[in-house]
């Protein structure tokens, strides 16, 4: 493998990492504020992609302009999920959150399949054929937009959390819920807001993914969501910098390791393809990290 190829693979990993990061930040935000985990986050991504698809189909405007609309719709859905699903069961045990999410997964996947069939849907990007050369690497404009969007979002998000009153209130809630409530912060509103924001981010990830050339099916959310959970766990629950580093790392490692494994086995004289092991490797990494540090690399105390 020559070094040019290696750099290229790093870039693809980076791009793949962006989707994980958008999902992971949303998950982290919700966890931080409410201390609950929505396992159906991937289905929220899927619904975001479908929202973008339908708006695009009926309006046929520039798909990038649709993203805010899709985010808004899914943010409202997020509020519903929070109010009707997670809030009532808060404090009844962590296992219940998993069960509720499981129900949501079944509900959303099959509802979408029922309403809109399992046909693969796609959105045509106006920049689909534009490729930007950066040094030796040719980067499609769509990916550049995704990377820029992710960076802009992370910065905006950090500013929001640090500079605005609402953001500070959210941070206070995630640090100490009781104290925040005593200070006069409406913690329930913070819960709702965190779910809305987190879901909107998942919707953005779904829409961006669809526009960049992926196809939407009712089952599209499961794999990215599982990866995003791995990212959140590796990075440490509630840690946003952790999620960024872990997202990038996972995106790169899961792409590079199968190749290294093939070469290693090749040295031993066997010929074997490990490219189908991507998910398996992601879980191996997850398990190793958790065995060494049960709270993740950047996690302080976890739960």
């Amino acid at each position: 493998m020559d070094i040019g190829v290696f750099i290229q693979i790093l870039v693809w990993g980076l791009y793949a990492g962006c989707i994980y990061i958008l999902l992971a930040i949303g998950l982290n935000l919700i966890f931080g504020v409410m201390k609950v985990v929505n396992f159906a986050h991937g289905e929220v991504l899927m619904l975001g992609a479908y929202a973008a698809f339908w708006i695009y189909t009926y309006s046929s405007i520039n798909p990038y302009l649709i993203i805010p609309a899709s985010m808004l719709l899914i943010a409202i859905l997020g509020v519903f999920i929070e109010r009707l699903g997670f809030r009532p069961i808060m404090g009844t045990g962590k296992l219940n959150e998993i069960f509720l999410s499981l129900g949501l997964i079944y509900l959303f996947q099959n509802l979408v399949a029922f309403l809109w069939s399992t046909n693969s849907r796609s959105i045509r990007s106006p920049y689909g054929e534009v490729v930007v050369p950066i040094g030796a690497i040719k980067l499609p404009l769509d990916y550049l937009i995704i990377i820029i969007f992710t960076i802009v979002f992370i910065i905006a998000f950090q500013l929001f959390m640090k500079k605005t009153t609402t953001g500070r209130a959210m941070r206070a809630t995630s640090q100490n819920r009781e104290a925040a409530a005593l200070m006069g912060i409406n913690v329930e509103r913070m819960d709702m807001l965190s779910f809305a924001l987190g879901s909107a981010l998942a919707a953005a990830a779904g829409s961006l993914w669809l526009i960049s050339g992926q196809m939407a099916t009712p089952y599209m959310g499961s794999i990215p969501a599982i990866k995003a959970f791995a990212v959140v766990i590796i990075g440490g629950l509630g840690s946003i910098p952790g999620a960024i580093v872990a997202g990038m790392t996972l995106g790169i490692v899961e792409n590079v390791v199968p190749l290294l494994m093939s070469s290693l086995v090749g040295i031993l004289g066997f010929e074997m393809s490990f490219t189908a092991w991507k998910d398996t490797i992601a879980f191996f990494i997850l398990i190793i990290v958790l065995v060494i540090r049960p709270t993740g690399i950047f996690g302080e105390k976890g739960e």
Binding site: W12, W209, N255, T275
Partner: peptide, 21 residues
């Protein structure tokens, strides 16, 4: 070249790079 991928995979860039090589 003969490479595998997992069902519903969405990211083929790396494996395609290997194939290109």
């Amino acid at each position: 070249a003969a490479e595998k991928f997992k069902m519903s995979e969405t990211d083929f860039r790396t494996v395609l790079t290997v194939i290109k090589a």
